[in-house]
Amino acid sequence: MKIMTAIKRVPDYNLRVRPLPDQLQVDLRNVKMSINPFCEIAVEEAVRIKERGIASEVIAVSIGEDACKEQIRVALAIGADRGIFVKTNAEIQPLASAKILYALYRQEQPDLVILGKQSIDGDNNQTGQMLAGLAGLPQGTFASAVTFAEGAVTVTREVDVGLETIKLTLPAVITADLRLNTPRYLTLPNIMRARKKEMTTIALDSLNVDVTPKIELLGVASPTQRQPCTFVNDAVELVDKLTNEARVL
């Protein structure tokens, strides 16, 4: 079995980003960038499936500027076999990402695509479902467990009412939720090994995909700030404040 994963380069999850003074864009100058945590989980899962002897190859794809190669190297250090870097300076929105991944899907013919369920910058949670729609594949979104048997994959999904289990025919698209696994720490030997792995660069134009953004960003703002916290000394004072001041009890 061949698995394709994709990774996005995003601001580190610990950062609080802010709008630029013109309030038109987010300030990403000198911001520490990392692999999107959900994408990291997706790559980890693909590698574990390979380590269980179910998959024979794991491909890691990233789309964007040259710096995205750093995140592909992280995926290769986790254990992906080769990287595909789709080079573009254009803004790539979820539908465009899905179209690019669909083009690569047709080239590579993987049996399984594992993506993160959302990126922590756009918070869209769309690309996996869109890829499944374009390719006409079944989808197992928000996965917290994945098992294989007889040409099918069983996916446990974290849904609003609990844990849902569905069975999908292969090929299929899976999107990873937080509890699918805990990604391994990268060891120095694996980081060194990753440097020697194959990484192909593809110019976006060569894929013949329409990536025109359909969503225009008109402006960005910081959310309204709350008044500073009022500290109380004990439960008696808390009940008093909630009853007589906030009037919520």
Partner: peptide, 23 residues
């Protein structure tokens, strides 16, 4: 924007070649 909507709408939108505004 429940797990129901987030699971379904992007798939529908992609088939229609439309973008989705989430949440």
């Amino acid at each position: 924007a429940s797990t129901f909507g987030k699971n379904l709408l992007p798939r529908i939108a992609a088939v229609l070649d439309m973008a989705v505004v989430s949440d």
